[in-house]
């Protein structure tokens, strides 16, 4: 089964772009969807729009993949809450658990227990410990995302500008990966841009706003804020506008388009990289289905319906290149 699939994949890859479309849709039908499976999607917490965008995509894909889909998670962003949910999913004999973690290490024992009982674990967005999951769908390559974060502001400021970072919490895994990547890229390509302060908004819109105001008041020379967190970017942009510094201070970072639409239109945010959260949700379901079918290996290539072809490298699947929102394209994305 695996070999026949990879054969077809190779054929698809060799085929010219004209033929690709036809073949890809043929492949979607080729995923074995005979047995109905139960797949759960467990976000960091229920009730945030960026995770709901994943859910939206996942629901669509689940229908065509014969998946019994459940979206459930804790009401606060706590590892304990997620572990409770995992335990209940194990007891309910789900076939696949997909999750974005509040904490890579704390979730590991529960997920390992799940795997021991034959449940497949697929992490997405924010990874868990590598030995606690079967596959990880990385939003975008970290280095590339670091570059995109820098470019979202660097183009619009002086080469020796002072900038600030507004993140979520000091120990947020994915934010720290991005901040490291952006620092590396910054020192290589914009060595004279100086990060004067790093503050945290605790993923809370109000604390992010206060932190943004404080950054700008305490560091009047700052001309850009990079905020690689949904609440933080909104808070930073709102702070800039409240201080009447729109046009003088540019905000970049990453956030879902609905939250930042008004700031992109007003020009406080020139561009912002993210990825298509809805399609990522679809991919999560494809990987879940294929993992349940034992149809992908740790290093393999597979086709996920209309989404195209993806490669797993050492169990890590990079979902897409950064998708950059700006004034011209943001209205095409509604999530």
């Amino acid at each position: 089964m695996t070999s026949s699939l990879s054969y077809r994949l190779r054929a698809a890859l060799l085929a010219g772009p004209l033929m690709l479309a036809g073949l890809v849709s043929a492949h979607a039908a080729d995923i074995d969807t005979g047995k109905r499976i139960k797949v759960a999607m467990v976000p960091k917490l229920v009730g945030l729009s960026v995770f709901k965008a994943n859910q939206q995509g996942a629901e669509t894909a689940a229908k065509s993949l014969n998946i019994d889909f459940l979206y459930t998670g804790p009401v606060t962003a706590s590892a304990q809450g997620q572990v409770d949910v995992f335990n209940s999913l194990i007891a309910r004999r789900f076939n696949v658990i997909t999750t974005t973690s509040n904490n890579p290490t704390q979730l590991a024992p529960a997920l390992k227990r799940a795997r021991k009982q034959g449940i497949k674990v697929v992490s997405y967005d924010s990874d868990v410990a590598a030995d606690a999951r079967d596959f990880f769908i990385q939003n975008t390559d970290y280095a590339e995302f670091g570059k995109a974060l820098v470019e979202s502001v660097a183009k619009y400021i002086k080469p020796d500008a002072e900038i600030a970072i507004l993140s979520s919490t000091p120990d947020a895994t994915i934010q720290n990966e991005w901040i490291n990547a952006l620092k590396t890229y910054l020192s290589a390509h914009y060595p004279n841009i100086k990060i004067v302060t790093t503050q945290y908004g605790q993923s809370s819109p109000s604390q992010s706003l206060t932190a943004g105001l404080n950054i700008l008041q305490a560091n009047p020379n700052v001309t850009a804020i990079i905020a690689p967190d949904g609440a933080a970017e909104v808070g930073a942009a709102a702070a800039v506008e409240k201080l009447g510094k729109s046009g003088k201070v540019v905000v970049g970072g990453c956030s879902d388009p609905n939250s930042i639409r008004q700031y992109v239109k007003s020009g406080t945010i020139r561009e912002t990289p993210l990825w298509d959260e809805v399609k990522e949700g679809e991919l999560v379901m494809y990987v879940a289905r294929l993992a349940a079918n034992n149809a992908i290996g740790p290093n393999s290539t597979f086709t996920a319906g209309d989404l195209g072809t993806f490669t797993a490298k050492n169990k890590v699947i990079v979902f897409s290149k950064p998708l950059v929102f700006n004034k011209d394209n943001i209205d095409q994305y509604q999530f």
Binding site: T76, S78, A79, Q80, N103, Q106, A108, P109, D171
Partner: peptide, 16 residues
Amino acid sequence: VLAAYYSAVRPDMGDV
């Protein structure tokens, strides 16, 4: 006990 259960620690792990 939580540290042993999770085989990990976090500063905010007691919040709940």
